[in-house]
Nucleic acid binder design. Structure first.
Lengths: 159, 159
DNA sequence: GACTCTTTACTCGGATAGACGGTGTCCGAGTTTTGGTGG
DNA sequence: CCACCAAAACTCGGACACCGTCTATCCGAGTAAAGAGTC
């Protein structure tokens, strides 16, 4: 089981956009330069965040991206779900109904099997933990030098 | 993010092996017939469980697989880790060090970034939930007719 | 009848091919700013 | 000086290769039970 790189990109970009709030909007290319990421592909992931209402995109010259709402109201689950998708990692194919279980009378498998229940419970715990942390929490726990560092580096890119 | 089908297969096969404890060992082919699964590929997944010490394989004629220890001592995390691997879903590529962060003095990024910490915390909650449930719990919560059903179907396969 | 050897049936481990999703790039369409042009 | 128009820069959305992983199969090697042959 593996999570795509887009999640890491998205979270760090959201952090950068939060630090650079007053310089917004930030174009994709500058954001990509900050982390040495492929610009076009990064844009695809940022568009996922726009679709989810986490970022807002400004078209035209001097356009770019900005946070669509306050960092306190952006949870990590929001970002993960926007980029990685909303369906569960474990997908039940109901193999208990195939083969031997095929001839059983209807109603035998009315209740979901324990395997699915257990897996769902685990994923729920995962989601709950992600939903409990916001972008603002990440900003608070980051190094105090992070905001200034980001602004300084960004200023050098535009200059 | 997606989990392979092998996890579902492995868990249901472990359940079946628990019900059929007195008929052990059960060959791969019979196990595959029970759920209409591709026999050779299923064997690969069962071998993963053997490597992890969850199942024991008996070679030779009338060989097959059996549980290597009591269902009370097999957690869902054991099965998932054996089949899906033990490394985390979120892999940190330290993109904060690339690009703008490349020229920073060593020691700037001594502490792991908050993104990794948050992700690890969520995955830990997931693992804890999986480790809290054993195969015996699944057996207890299954339909009371399940053991008999499984034994009856298996008897018909051998006959 | 007991022992040994061969056959058989199964597992084990690796090698291999195809399918699928994630990664990455490119291009055309739409939009807004910038800059020029004519009245 | 003002209004209008064209060019530039950017985002948006879709289409397209590439690559790694998952799915699935096959084959040779090893092992244990079953059966045949011999003493």
């Amino acid at each position: 089981m593996r999570m795509g790189e887009g999640v890491e990109w998205g979270l760090h970009c959201c952090l950068a956009l939060a630090w650079l709030e007053d310089e917004a909007p930030i174009p994709t290319g500058k954001l990509a330069e900050l982390f040495e990421l492929p610009p076009v592909y990064l844009k695809k992931r940022l568009q996922d965040l726009v679709r989810a209402g986490i970022l807002a995109s400004v078209p035209g010259v001097k356009g770019g991206f900005r946070l669509a709402r306050a960092p306190e109201r952006i949870t990590l689950l929001d970002v993960v779900a926007a980029i990685e998708g909303r369906d569960e990692a474990f997908r039940c194919n109901e193999i208990r109904r195939r083969g031997a279980g095929a001839e059983e009378p209807a109603g035998t498998f009315a209740k979901p099997c324990g395997v699915v229940i257990a897996m769902r419970r685990a994923e729920l715990a995962w989601r709950r933990e992600l939903a409990a942390q916001t972008l603002a929490d990440l900003m608070r726990e980051a190094a105090p030098s992070a905001p200034g560092r980001t602004r300084r580096h960004y200023a050098r890119l535009t200059g």
